[in-house]
Nucleic acid binder design. Structure first.
Lengths: 378, 378
DNA sequence: ACCTTACCTGAAAACGGTTTCAGAAACGGT
DNA sequence: ACCGTTTCTGAAACCGTTTTCAGGTAAGGT
C-alpha cells in the first residue's frame, strides 16, 4: 500500500516548486512543462480531491436524490443525468429516499456539504427540504415534482395535467363514460396534477364519476393491485381505467389477471410512463409516454448552468410534453356490463380497503387465474 | 450566502479551543460538552468532509460502478447496496460504464481517490481495471462478474451455471430436444457461465445442438430481438429457447410477437432474472430468479467489512443460489414443427446477421403486430 | 549599459479539520 | 499538605492543494 504521491513529490522529481506544478496543472504556461509531465506520469500522480476542495470550496460532485432507483422512470432519470456529467468534471452521489420526507431530510443533511449542487425529486409538495437546501446556498434543481416554495426553484416537470387529460380524452373518444382512475398521492406534484387532469377532463365532458372511481394507489405496485381490486368489486364497475403511474399499472394488471377480466374487451386500461415491456404485453399497453432520460439530462444541464452562471438568476420552470402511445389495451366499451367470475369475487373481497403489508408470498407468483364461471351482475 | 461556520466559530462561541471541540465531536468526555452542543446547534455547524478526509485519508464514500442502472437487475443491486450504507456512515457514488472497459477505466480513474472502497461490476472478464484498483490499494468487491485475476478479489456471484442448467433441465424434462439459447457476451462471467451451463446440460442429455442454436445477443434488448429473429429464420427452428438475460428476453419476446409465434404452443421460452412484468405477460414468463437486492446488499456488507477489518484477509467468494420460477411460458413441444406465417418470413429476412444501430425510431413503439392471422386468447 | 515591460517563479499563507505533546487541573490516598 | 495518578486542556504541527505576493530573469526599447 504505497502512499499516493503528492504534488510535493512531483515538484521534487521535476526540480521545481509546488506552485509551479500547481500552475501547470491549471493550464498556465510554465517553462518546465515537459519535465513536470514526465514526473506526473512516472509517479502516477493524481491531485487529491479532498485537499483541492478544502481550498477551493468546490467538491466537483453533484447529488441526485430520488425516491427509488428501482422505479424505471427514476432509473432513466439517473441515466440521463449521468450522461451529462460524464462529459464534464462532475461525479454523482446517488441516494434513495423511499418516498419519505424524513429519510430525505437525513440524506440531504448528509450530502449537503459534499456537493456543489443537487438534483432532487422531493417526496412531497409539503416537503421542507428544498428550502433547507436554499438556505444552505446549494444550487438545486427539482425533478418531476415541485416543492412548497414553487417558483423559487429551477424545476423540470412534464405536463402531468395534459398527459392525464389526453389519456382520459382518448377513453372518452372511444365512447367510455364510466372511467375510473388509480391515483397517486395527492401530496406529490404528479399525483395531484394527474388527478386534476382526470377530474377536469371528466367534468368538461359533463360526467360526474362516483367517488369510488378515484382510487388511491400510492404510486406503489401493491397499491395499484388493491385499487384495481376495489374497482372490480364495485357493484357497477368502470369500463375504463386510467392508472396514474407505471408501478401501479403493474399491480393493476396483476389484479386484472388474477380476476380474469379481459382487456380491452371487459375493461380498457391506460397507463402513465412507457416501458419496454408495455409493447409485449397482451394486449400491448396504451400509455402516456414522456421523455424520461431527457428529463434527467435537462435537469442536470440546468443545474450545471445554475452552478456556473450567476446564481441569483430567476428560477426556470421547464415543462416537457407527454405523448399518447396508442397500442391495444383500449377499445370502445362493451354493450353489456362486464361480468366478474364467481370465484373471483371471493378473491376480490379478500382485499378490502386496508393496505396489505407487502406483495404476497414468493410462491404466489405462479398463481393461475381462478375459475371461469360467469355470473351476470349489475 | 452566509459562509458555513467552522470549528473555530464553534470554539469561540463555546469559549474553548478547537481541539476541545474536535474531541467532543469524536466522543471524548469533555467538560464543556453542554456549551459546545449549544454552540453547534446555534451555529448549525457541520464539520467539513473535505477537511476531515484531507487529514484522515478517509472519504466516507463508496463507489458503485455498474454497466447500466437502467437494467432492473443493477437497479436492484444499487438499492440493495444503498440499503446497507444508509444505516452507516457512508454515501454512494454511482457511475455507469455502458458495458465498456474504456469508459469503466475513465470512471474508475475519476473515482479512485474519492472513495474508501468500491463495488464494481466489471464490463468484461479481461477487464484490467480491478487490478488497477488493487494497485491503488482501494478495497474492492466485484459484483456479478469476475475479473481476470479471479481469486484475488472478494466477489458476490450467483450460480449462473446452475441457473442455466436448471432452465435447460426444465425444458428437457418437458420433452424438448431442440433447445436453443440466446447468449450474452462470452467475455463476461454471466455470459460465459450461462452458456456453459446450457452446453453442458445439453451434452449430458446426449444432445448436440446445431451451432446456430447458440445465438449471441450481447445482453441487450435489440440483440435479443435479432437473435430470436435468427432462430425463427432457421429452416428447422428450435422448440424452446433459453434467453440468458432480462433485456434480451424483452427483445426476444418482441420478435416473437412481431412474427406471431405462439408461446408456449409453438415455442417455449425461459428467461433469466425475474421482473414484476414477467407475471403479467401472456403467458406469464417462466424464469430463473435470483436474490437481486440481496446480492447488492451482501456485496456492500462484504466491502464494509473488508474496509474495516484487516485488509490482508483472504478473498471471499460468495455464490448465491438461483431458483426456477415456473409460470406458463414452457410446455411440452408440439408434435408438428411450428409454422412461420408467410408474411412474417419476409420480416425475418430483414434482420440478417449484422447488428442494427439502435432500437427503431421512437414512433416504432406504437407498431401493431404484422399482418398475421394468428390471434391467441385463452 | 540601463530601464521598462512582460513573464515566470518560489516562499508562505491560507482552507478546516485531527492528532500529538506537554502541561494544568482535579482527584485520591497517605 | 503532599505526591502520584488520572483526566482534561490548548498550542502547534500536519494533511495536499490553491493563491497571493514579492521578486527574479529574459526580452525589448532607448
Amino acid at each position: 500500500m504505497p502512499k499516493p504521491p503528492t504534488i510535493t513529490d512531483v515538484a521534487d522529481e521535476a526540480g521545481v516548486s509546488i506552485s509551479t506544478v500547481s500552475r501547470h496543472m491549471r493550464g498556465d504556461r510554465v517553462r518546465a512543462a515537459k519535465r513536470i509531465d514526465r514526473a506526473i506520469a512516472r509517479l502516477r500522480y493524481r491531485p487529491s480531491p479532498a485537499a483541492r476542495s478544502l481550498k477551493s470550496g468546490k467538491t466537483g460532485a453533484v447529488a441526485l436524490v430520488v425516491p427509488d432507483v428501482t422505479n424505471p422512470f427514476f432509473a432513466a432519470v439517473v441515466r440521463g443525468a449521468e450522461s451529462i456529467t460524464a462529459q464534464g468534471r462532475h461525479i454523482i452521489f446517488l441516494a434513495n429516499t423511499d418516498e419519505s420526507d424524513d429519510r430525505e431530510a437525513a440524506v440531504i443533511e448528509d450530502l449537503l456539504s459534499r456537493v456543489d449542487g443537487m438534483l432532487l425529486a422531493p417526496a412531497s409538495e409539503s416537503d421542507p427540504n428544498p428550502q433547507r437546501l436554499a438556505d444552505a446556498g446549494v444550487p438545486t434543481v427539482l425533478i418531476d415534482r415541485e416543492g412548497p416554495s414553487a417558483g423559487c426553484f429551477d424545476v423540470v416537470l412534464v405536463d402531468n395535467y395534459g398527459g392525464a387529460r389526453s389519456a382520459v380524452e382518448h377513453l372518452l373518444s372511444l365512447g367510455h363514460e364510466r372511467i375510473a382512475t388509480i391515483a397517486g398521492p395527492v401530496g406529490s406534484t404528479p399525483g395531484r396534477l394527474r388527478l386534476e387532469g382526470y377530474s377536469a377532463t371528466m367534468a368538461d365532458a359533463g360526467i360526474d364519476p362516483p367517488s369510488a372511481f378515484v382510487q388511491p394507489g400510492g404510486f406503489m405496485e401493491h397499491g395499484g393491485y388493491q385499487a384495481m381490486m376495489q374497482l372490480l368489486a364495485l357493484p357497477d364497475p368502470p369500463t375504463a381505467v386510467f392508472v396514474a403511474n407505471n408501478l401501479m399499472t403493474i399491480g393493476a394488471l396483476r389484479a386484472i389477471k388474477d380476476i380474469g377480466v379481459r382487456v380491452p374487451d371487459d375493461l380498457s386500461i391506460i397507463g402513465f410512463d412507457d416501458h419496454p415491456f408495455s409493447e409485449i404485453l397482451d394486449p400491448p399497453l396504451t400509455v402516456v409516454g414522456r421523455p424520461m432520460e431527457q428529463q434527467g439530462a435537462l435537469a442536470m444541464r440546468m443545474l450545471l448552468s445554475r452552478m456556473s452562471e450567476n446564481p441569483g438568476r430567476m428560477a426556470r420552470r421547464v415543462v416537457l410534453d407527454t405523448h399518447l402511445i396508442q397500442r391495444a389495451s383500449c377499445s370502445p366499451p362493451r354493450e353489456n356490463p362486464m361480468s366478474i367470475p364467481q370465484g373471483a369475487r371471493a378473491l376480490i373481497n379478500k382485499f378490502p380497503k386496508h393496505p396489505h403489508p407487502e406483495r404476497g408470498s414468493p410462491d404466489g407468483s405462479g398463481r393461475k387465474r381462478t375459475g371461469t364461471t360467469l355470473e351476470r351482475r349489475n
